[in-house]
């Protein structure tokens, strides 16, 4: 019997009541993540990536939001809805979080150093002086030059890349076991993105923390992830190791995403194949597979019945009827990379 994963999320359902009705933003999501491991969550805008992790962190506004079902256990203990374990808040101590826009978690009226020192004083009972020194050390370890001087500055004096580093310094200050990063580099240049991603990998190597990385950039996934969850319309439609997702994709949506992106392969001037149409409206989610209206392989069944998880390998599953053992349409063409003569 293996030990419980660091974080295990099961059957998470989240909805929002709005003027137009109830948005079913997250519709039964399962995933887990272990120490030393990076799970990437990918998918297009509005598919529920942020809401999934925000509900774990107690960050969705209730109301209009509501966690209608599910559980999230940190080392086996439920944190959904309370975020307290033995009366201690796990946010900021056990789980750190960084966002696309650093200003959503930074206070413009406080110096950077004071903001990083604060969680240390709250969660780790550091005295003011010791917390300040630790903040400077953290800024330095996040490769902020002249950390001592920078600690005394305000957020407006920092560039976007520097703010992102400062936010990482704050998120890891209490040595969290898990770092959740929601599109941490989407607003940055590739050069700065590269620096931030390297920093995250180095910190993971040093501390063994688990990372959940939300992104819509498959390049970032390829660089960072051990495991990947592909989300579509509020559900995880495929889950597997990074190689499963890139070399043995089992879901038409995953394949669609990949062929919509340019590939830097000199020998192949591949055309971009867009996914036509748009994701379904989550006010009245379809009864069957959410991808059916856009899917080139859709069968009659797909629109009516929601596909369950079909296993394609160890730790690799996809929600697609093509993988039903009785399906006539073998999903061979899904492995288009192999079909395109990889290695030939």
């Amino acid at each position: 019997m293996t030990a419980a994963p660091l974080l295990q999320v099961e059957d998470l359902h989240v909805e929002f009541s709005t003027h137009g009705g109830i948005v079913q933003a997250v519709r039964g999501v399962n995933f887990s993540v272990d120490s030393n491991c990076t799970l990437a969550i990918v998918g297009e805008s509005g598919c529920g990536k942020s809401v999934s992790v925000q509900s774990i962190m107690g960050l969705i506004p209730i109301p209009p939001g509501r966690i209608s079902a599910g559980s999230a256990r940190l080392r086996g203990r439920e944190i959904l809805g309370s975020n307290l374990i033995d009366g201690r808040d796990v946010r900021g101590s056990e789980i750190g979080m960084i966002f696309q826009d650093p200003m959503t978690s930074l206070n413009p009226t406080m110096t950077i150093g004071a903001q990083i020192a604060e969680p240390l004083q709250v969660h780790r009972c550091y005295g003011a002086g010791r917390a300040r020194e630790e903040a400077i050390r953290l800024l330095d370890s996040c490769r902020i030059p002249e950390a001592r001087k920078r600690a005394g500055q305000y957020p407006f004096e920092f560039s976007g890349g520097m703010l992102q580093r400062a936010m990482i310094a704050m998120a890891i200050s209490c040595k969290p076991a898990l770092l959740i990063a929601d599109e941490p580099t989407t607003a940055l240049d590739v050069t700065i993105q590269s620096q931030i991603l390297d920093l995250m990998l180095d910190l993971q190597r040093e501390t063994g923390m688990a990372i959940i990385l939300i992104t819509h950039d498959l390049g970032v996934v390829a660089r960072m992830a051990d495991e990947v969850a592909v989300m579509y319309a509020g559900k995880i439609v495929e889950h597997g190791s990074v190689d499963d997702i890139f070399y043995r994709s089992a879901h038409p949506y995953t394949c669609g995403l990949r062929s919509a992106m340019p590939v830097n392969d000199r020998s192949r001037q591949a055309e971009l194949k867009p996914i036509e149409g748009r994701p379904p409206d989550l006010f009245s989610p379809p009864p069957g597979c959410g991808y059916a209206p856009r899917c080139p392989h859709a069968m009659n069944l797909c629109e009516r019945e929601h596909p369950p998880e079909f296993t394609s390998g160890v730790g690799h599953y996809s929600r697609c009827w093509l993988h039903h053992e009785m399906s006539r349409q073998r999903p061979r063409e899904l492995h288009f990379r192999a079909a395109a003569g990889e290695g030939a």
Binding site: T191, S194, L218, G219, A222, M261, V263, N264
Partner: peptide, 19 residues
């Protein structure tokens, strides 16, 4: 060198060339 390629094998092979 900073541009992430959507291919894990390429990413694993190449040395980080961060500016």
């Amino acid at each position: 060198g900073s541009n992430p390629e959507p291919d894990p094998e390429i990413e694993r092979k190449r040395a980080s060339a961060t500016i």
